[in-house]
């Protein structure tokens, strides 16, 4: 296990190095920058600013400087916000993480339960109904469900606040603050769960149906075990093994924010910051964000590789 992790870490560093080069090149070669977009500046002032920001240096040198800082944990300075990129991330990313973590938890919980029951009662009315509803939920665009629920739950029935993270002008602290955040989270979490649940339920249902046909399930039944034990001890564990791959993808998704959901519900998350920075061509921030997602993706993949070795005794340690 030790050598496996060392080897895997080495690969990870190589992949990240390649990814950083790619990300840097993409942004460096994109025509224009933050300064180009500002029509109020004279050409002389623009050249001056480029000199100050170091944008007139050769590409390779700029990459070297960027990497040197990145390795020291400094992802640069946002031009638009005039704050370190890292500070901005820290300010917004946890809001996104909160939404994503809660909705991911509910997505998995509900998908596993529905998937197992639907597989167990394959082709029953429950299974058919669930599959129809799930397809409907998957097929609707997020902005539609989002706006629709705002109209019903927030505007018409006034059960939940329509957007934001806190009520405007609120000074709540402690428990009152937490309660306010939870109330504001409810709608975006519902929408994100609805959107995510479909594919995962189908995935788990499909895996369960395959596993339920295996000989060892027949053995478990022949042993006289309770159906609950057959389903959850024997079948579900095997059905969830392939889902470990998905865990690798969940990690960047947890921190990546959601462009559309955060926009609709006016949630102060990293997705909103990202969209805003795009409009302003705030490249240091965009580059930093892309690198962060790359790092999380690579770590997620590594984690799922390690998890496979923990969860499936057949996967040999190298």
């Amino acid at each position: 296990m030790g050598t496996f992790i060392t080897k895997r870490l080495l690969y990870t560093i190589l992949i990240l190095l390649a990814a950083s080069l790619l990300i840097f090149s993409l942004y460096a070669w994109t025509p224009g920058d933050f300064i180009t977009g500002n029509i109020k500046l004279t050409p002389e002032r623009k050249a001056e600013l480029r000199e100050i920001y170091g944008l007139n240096k050769p590409l390779l040198e700029r990459y070297g400087i960027w990497m040197k800082h990145a390795l020291h944990g400094d992802f640069g300075y946002s031009m638009a916000q005039q704050k370190p990129v890292f500070t901005l991330f820290n300010q917004y990313i946890w809001n996104s993480f909160l939404l994503a973590a809660v909705s991911t938890f509910f997505t998995w919980l509900i998908a596993v339960i529905i998937g197992v029951v639907a597989a167990y009662r394959q082709y029953s009315w429950f299974d058919t109904l669930v599959m129809v509803v799930i397809f409907a939920a998957m097929s609707l665009p997020s902005f539609f469900i989002g706006l629709f629920l705002i109209k019903i739950l927030a505007v018409d029935w006034k059960w939940l606040p329509p957007g934001g993270m806190l009520t405007t002008g609120s000074n709540a602290t402690g428990m009152a603050y937490a309660e306010e955040v939870v109330r504001h989270m409810a709608l975006p979490v519902i929408v994100m769960t609805l959107l995510g649940i479909g594919s995962l339920t189908r995935y788990i249902r499909g895996n369960m149906i395959d596993v339920m046909k295996q000989d060892y399930i027949r053995t478990a039944r022949a042993k006289g075990l309770k159906e609950r034990q057959v389903l959850f001890t024997h079948a579900l564990r095997n059905a969830l093994l392939p889902a470990i791959t998905l865990v690798g993808f969940e990690l960047p998704a947890l921190f990546g924010g959601s462009l559309i959901i955060e926009k609709i519900f006016n949630w102060p998350g990293i997705g909103q910051l990202y969209m805003q920075s795009f409009g302003l061509r705030d490249y240091p921030l965009l580059m930093g964000f892309t690198v962060l997602i790359a790092i999380l993706t690579v770590i997620g993949t590594m984690l799922s590789d390690i998890l496979y070795r923990v969860a499936d005794p057949r996967v040999r340690l190298q």
């Binding site: 000989d215 060892y216 053995t219 042993k223 006289g224 095997n238 057949r314």
Partner: peptide, 24 residues
């Protein structure tokens, strides 16, 4: 039926390789 199965009437199968749960 479950209290008889595996208790009073037990069964073994043709394919031992696939008859046991691979992760337990």
């Amino acid at each position: 039926l479950r209290t008889i199965r595996g208790h009073e009437i037990a069964m073994i199968f043709q394919e031992p390789m696939s008859s046991l749960n691979p992760v337990l």
